[in-house]
């Protein structure tokens, strides 16, 4: 039997009837049609499906859709505003932190959460934070560089009173 859930994704409210066995990942991708969030393993082992659920980074493949009832989800499509990307999105391009791109949405969501909570992470803290996001292409070198670069510039911006849009 399907359950009716109401959830907010990237600021929009959706009312959807879902089978309890469908995961939040399936709901986001198949019911809502936001396919930026990727299914890499479906077992919570690769981090490609990372979204923010009530502000916390989670593997959306380990959350049931019904559990997201009356909760708020931010996906990769919810970063930036469509015209102006998030600084992390720009930095990933600039630093070559993307190769095949399949891990990228989850990686950026995890990194965004890190910088929101810890604006000046050390290299080790960045590595700790993203250790649940597997990447087979880059060896993580440029990903770490990109995150640290944004941390530096956002810190500079914050100190100068900029970045009020965030």
């Amino acid at each position: 039997m399907k359950c009716l859930i109401r959830l907010k994704v990237n600021g929009e409210t959706y009312e959807i009837a879902v089978e309890p066995r469908k995961t939040l990942l399936d709901v986001i991708r198949n019911e809502i049609g936001l396919t930026g969030t990727k299914k890499g393993c479906n077992m919570g082992e690769c981090g490609a499906c990372t979204v923010l659920l009530d502000g916390k980074a989670v593997c959306s493949c380990l959350v049931l859709g019904v559990e997201a009832d009356r909760r708020e989800v931010i996906t990769i499509e919810g970063l930036g505003n469509g015209v102006h990307p998030d600084p992390l999105q720009e930095a990933f391009v600039k630093h070559g932190a993307i190769q095949c791109g399949f891990c990228t949405p989850g990686m950026i969501m995890t990194a965004r959460k890190l910088l929101d909570e810890n604006p000046s992470p050390s290299e080790e803290e960045v590595r700790e934070a993203i250790c649940g996001n597997l990447c087979r292409c880059t060896g993580y070198v440029k990903i770490v560089e990109a995150v640290l670069d944004v941390a530096r510039s956002e810190k500079g911006g914050r100190d100068a009173g900029l970045l009020s849009h965030r």
Binding site: L34, T35, G36, T37, T75, I76, E77, L79, G80, P85, L88, Q89, E90, F92, V93, I98, G101, T104, P105, I108
Partner: peptide, 8 residues
């Protein structure tokens, strides 16, 4: 790159 990082 921008296609990839925005999830498009």
């Amino acid at each position: 790159g921008m296609e990839i990082v925005t999830g498009k």
